[in-house]
Write a protein that binds this DNA or RNA. Structure first.
Lengths: 378, 378
DNA sequence: CTGTTAGCGCATTCAC
DNA sequence: GTGAATGCGCTAACAG
């Protein structure tokens, strides 16, 4: 938007005035044509004389006109339909936060009538994912929001949508080789670097003499392909931080069989006792609170835990002091941004494609936890 | 908003459908009255029979109706005028970020025609503040956004606006005894606690044997009354963190005469040499990078600096490694939230008053700096 | 008290 | 090719 500064000094203060938005009627008047002609030009649906076109484009470029998407939607007198396919998840879990963001955005834009169809699938069941993805084109949506767990299935859905010329937006993960209208995700390797720094910081407290310190990365093994790629990127980021900081050879790794509590507990405790120099643990998967709980129940209080994702469990772990810090990838913001991108794409008819919306990554500790939930309250 | 879940199982996935928004005409039809009557009820501008009122309210409550603020603004066929009075500041400074947030929101809501008049004043010149504040009522604005530096002047402006029944929104600082439509600010004491934790964390790296560690709070003295109140709250927060953590008697304070570079440098260096146990410094004012620069130029590399506010200078200091962490109070979000609150207040005719919008507080380090700017990109 | 009416910015249809 | 006319959700003025 253009802002015209009309500054004059008075007393000791300056005044600015915002420019008024021009309307289509106004543009038409200035160009000496009718509103209908301007509209035809804006939507390039033909049958306009070169003379009229030149006149209108001149006014358009000089005035910095932007159409009012809300009245535009009213004029269209039809809603849009958006299909969403993401993994199912319980309240307080990661994918549920993305869903919250989507719902929030639909709410925020409730004046644009949007019919949103959701097809959930089981993150660990490739067949349910195929079924969900196959049902998407059948819905004949105007746009699709895709949260991928299985790369091949996602790619095939993207290609199918490309063929049908239906725009789609990716959340949480980018899919190489696809041509989304937009993708909304956090840079996992950057998250890893941030995690590395926090792992290092929380692990150095309180200072202790002698011996060099060690830091642990805990990976919970059960997960789908996309999640594994993400955790690999996080791991690489952590290594990158330590390597850049010149702290070599201090990272230890441990895997936790996520679906076997007894075995998990055994291997974590064994690891801790075998590695007394470990000063802090980063839990790469979303279940930091489970590892933290195991440590707490076994009286291990001097090994702070760093977790990923502000899930219900991690949040409670942070409040209880069992978790020291959480890296937040803003899943709600991802969902919200995806819906906004879809609306933009549908209402502005000639939008750019393949826009990457990189999420902010935040460190949540006990002190700022109470303030971190209302980022996009209305 | 009400969401109706219309779930049916198919393949292995669930479908949900969003509810359609009802229109005023639809409400009128359901209640057996005309649209005009519904409108009168929605804006309680009287002359409605009890019977009609009851019928409409019934439909209203059952349908969870929410009016479309954008077409509403169109129907009003008039723009609103908002006056903004905040301290002047250069690009990249704190108040400029608030202004950015305001401009961003005006842009986001450019379809609602808003005429925004800005009256800047000099943060350190009470006379310019009086002049700016006195000019506000003259503008006859529909709503006012106030950024206060001088409590008395702000209070008097608030009272004057109260008398005239003009809603106002406070940014950055709350003003006791006023009745704003909303206030948008960060909890400074909470920021202090967060700063305390970070000060402690960055100060404990690398671990060192013997002697207990000390931590410093650096206060730059030149500032207006409101800022002094804020820095006092931050200081209290830092003390609170250390006291709760059971780390007693380890905080040292130093004041820096902000307008005297030579004197600042002298007193900081003197302080550092007199306090060799100091492990890290929190700069309470917005000019952390100046202190950081003094340390860097004098070869003091083992005392990490914690700063407040993502100003241009602090941002560069962080990138250059002279500053270790920055506490961000999201000034842009404050400005944006203020405008949104104003719009809400003006368009929904019966809004609640005195809503506190508490900002999130974030820790910015080198690793997440590149991702922290686009929180509310459209 | 109430329904009707006109008009806002936009998109579309339909004569000319 | 083009402008006029219509309708969307909403508000406000007006006539009964």
């Amino acid at each position: 938007m253009k802002i015209f500064y009309n500054i004059r000094i008075r007393y000791a203060c300056e005044y600015q005035f915002m420019a008024k938005q021009l309307t289509i009627t106004e543009i038409a008047r200035l160009a000496g044509v009718s509103a209908g002609t301007v509209d035809r030009i804006l939507h390039n649906r033909g049958k306009v004389s070169d003379k009229a076109l030149a006149a209108v484009e001149k006014v358009l470029s000089e005035s910095g006109y932007r159409k009012n998407i809300h009245t535009s939607a009213v004029g269209l007198r039809k809603g849009f339909s958006i299909a969403v396919s993401i993994p199912n998840s319980d309240r307080g879990e990661y994918w549920n936060a993305i869903l919250n963001g989507i719902n929030h955005a639909l709410d925020e834009f409730s004046d644009i009538s949007i019919d949103c169809k959701l097809a959930f699938y089981n993150q660990f069941d490739i067949y349910s994912c195929r079924a969900a993805f196959e049902s998407i084109p059948e819905m004949k949506p105007d746009a699709v929001i895709i949260g991928a767990s299985f790369p091949e299935e996602a790619t095939s859905l993207c290609l199918s949508l490309d063929r049908k010329n239906i725009p789609y937006i990716l959340v949480n993960t980018a899919i190489p080789g696809s041509f989304p209208a937009a993708s909304c995700y956090a840079d996992q390797e950057a998250c890893g670097k941030l995690a590395g720094k926090m792992l290092y910081l929380i692990g150095s407290t309180p200072p202790q003499p002698g011996k060099h310190a060690e830091y642990a990365i805990l990976d919970s093994s059960l997960s789908d392909t996309c999640t594994r790629q993400q955790t690999a990127a996080r791991k690489a980021g952590i290594r990158e931080f330590f390597s850049r900081a010149g702290i070599e050879n201090c990272l230890r790794e441990i895997t936790m069989p996520a679906m076997n509590p007894a075995e998990s507990e055994r291997s974590i405790l064994e690891f801790i006792h075998a590695h007394p120099l470990v000063k802090s643990i980063a839990v790469i998967g979303p279940r930091g609170y489970i590892a933290a709980d195991i440590l707490a129940r076994n009286g291990i209080r001097d090994v702070p835990v760093l977790a990923f994702d502000l899930t219900e469990g991690n949040r409670k772990g942070l409040q209880a002091g069992m978790i020291s810090a959480i890296i937040d990838l803003h899943p709600e913001l991802q969902g919200r941004t995806a819906v906004k991108a879809a609306i933009k794409h549908l209402l502005y008819k000639t939008p750019e494609k393949n826009i990457s919306h990189l999420m902010p990554v935040d460190i949540i500790v006990a002190e700022n936890l109470p303030y971190c939930k209302n980022i996009f309250l209305e």
